[in-house]
Design a protein around this nucleic acid. Sequence first.
DNA 1: TTATTTGCAAACGGTTTGCCGATTA
DNA 2: TAATCGGCAAACCGTTTGCAAATAA
Lengths: 139, 139
Amino acid sequence: MNTIEEKCQQKGVRLTDQRKTIAKILSESKEVYGSKDHPDVDELHKRVSALDDKISIATVYRTVKLFEEAGILIKHDFKAGKARYEINDDHNHLIDINSGEIIEFVDKDIEKLQNEVAKKLGYKLVDHKLELYGSKIKK
Amino acid sequence: MNTIEEKCQQKGVRLTDQRKTIAKILSESKEVYGSKDHPDVDELHKRVSALDDKISIATVYRTVKLFEEAGILIKHDFKAGKARYEINDDHNHLIDINSGEIIEFVDKDIEKLQNEVAKKLGYKLVDHKLELYGSKIKK
DNA sequence: TTATTTGCAAACGGTTTGCCGATTA
DNA sequence: TAATCGGCAAACCGTTTGCAAATAA
């Protein structure tokens, strides 16, 4: 398991204080806020500012884009407007259409079918995005 | 098979000349441009202007949003930036990461699994979005 | 030292909106 | 006629960028 900082070094991304701080916030994200956490840039800036209030939002934008290009983060445009980020670890999302809550899940069977479909169409699957939208079943 | 105009009447959407023109362009979209057509607002405005050059882009924005709320159109944010629209008829997309070409497909097995996953998580599936990204296999 | 990075504020680009005359039902 | 709509231009909002000072390697 390598940290964001380690990945940066592998990719030759310069490690500045600001980037280290942002990396730290991102790494802690799930532990502190749970697996339903998909912060937008504004929210990240707020969290980062608690550690270092000199970091500008422009830097957060630049860093988040950099990390995305390095494959460290994935960007979501769940409903467009504001992009939201999380550490890249390949799973899907079920979005509660009433509360907006986001549940993460993985399903090997669906993945297998996705590969088959792509192949059938003459393509090699490189990436995928699956979002389910649903409402809670009350018991 | 009911037309966009019919759907508007069902939903109580007032049928103005501008909306009729835009509806016409949207209906013809697939026949004229093929199933890979997912025009953005700018492109729609261009096409619409050929029939009536008095229609402003603000009207296209308003109409497209109206049609989306009425369930007539679906909005895609494939890579964010510009939203793209097409008539709502439930299928998925495979996007060629090299050319940007969009292939539409349906897969009943995947859909079945999606329903099961949602149910397992305690949700009733209301909507879904599946995008595959791939590169062409050369033979 | 030298290429990169940052903070700031201004620019950008897609989208929305206030106003008011025009149009639909 | 009354409610709604459309055109125009200005506002909006998330994001990007040019510049000069600061910093990593």
